Amino acid sequence: MSSWWQLGVHRTPSGSLQAATEETVDRDPVSSSSILSVGYEGTSETLEIEFRETGVYQYLNVPQFMWERLMAADSVGKFFNAEIKNAFACQKV
């Protein structure tokens, strides 16, 4: 089964499909005041986060367990700020 990112589309926070660039990762909506959606691509260890105010960023070389902890966190935004924001290289998509 192919991931949405492999097919060239991704899910928006509203659940619709949208054309994507090759670099885009399939994201799932999250409940957060600062983050709209989060996705992870395990082969490249790329964590992709869509922020409400600043757009989409990819965090590079993020181990899968960090993504799992982020998605299980009581506060996605607080976990991101404490554990990911300054710990991994990132690029704006």
Score class of each variant (00 low, 15 high):
A87N: 12
W67G: 00
V25W: 01
G39A: 12
D74F: 12
V9Q: 05
P63L: 02
A89N: 09
A87G: 00
K85E: 14
S44P: 02
D28I: 07
R52N: 00
W67P: 03
P63Y: 08
S14D: 11
C90I: 09
L47C: 04
P29V: 09
A89W: 05
T12I: 00
E50M: 03
E45F: 01
A20Q: 11
N81D: 15
F80S: 02
G39C: 12
H10Q: 05
N61I: 00
E83A: 00
Q18S: 14
V76C: 01
M66I: 15
G55Y: 15
A72F: 11
S31R: 09
A87I: 06
F79H: 07
P13C: 06
S37D: 08
K85L: 10
P63S: 05
F88C: 02
E41S: 10
T12D: 07
Q91S: 11
D28W: 07
T21A: 14
S37F: 03
F79Y: 15
K78I: 12
L36N: 12
W4Q: 04
G8C: 08
S37T: 09
R27F: 02
I35D: 01
P63N: 04
S3C: 05
F51M: 08
S2G: 02
Q18E: 15
G42M: 08
G15R: 03
I84D: 05
V93E: 10
M71A: 10
S31N: 14
A20P: 10
A19Q: 15
T24V: 05
T12F: 00
H10G: 03
K78W: 09
G77C: 05
F79A: 00
F65E: 14
Q6K: 12
M66V: 15
G42C: 09
V25Y: 02
S31F: 11
Y40W: 10
H10L: 06
V56P: 02
S32P: 08
F65H: 15
E48T: 06
G42S: 13
M71W: 11
H10R: 10
T24Q: 12
M66Q: 13
G42A: 13
D26W: 00
T54R: 08
P29W: 04
S16P: 09
G8N: 11
V62H: 07
E68C: 14
S34A: 13
Y40H: 06
Q58K: 00
S33L: 12
S75L: 07
P63K: 06
W5H: 12
F51Y: 13
Y57I: 08
Q58F: 02
G77I: 03
F80T: 01
Y40M: 09
R69V: 03
S16N: 15
E22D: 15
Y57H: 11
F80H: 01
V25A: 02
D28S: 13
P13Q: 08
H10M: 06
I35H: 04
P13R: 04
S3D: 09
G15Y: 05
V9S: 02
Y59T: 01
F88D: 09
E48C: 04
E68A: 14
A72Y: 14
N61K: 03
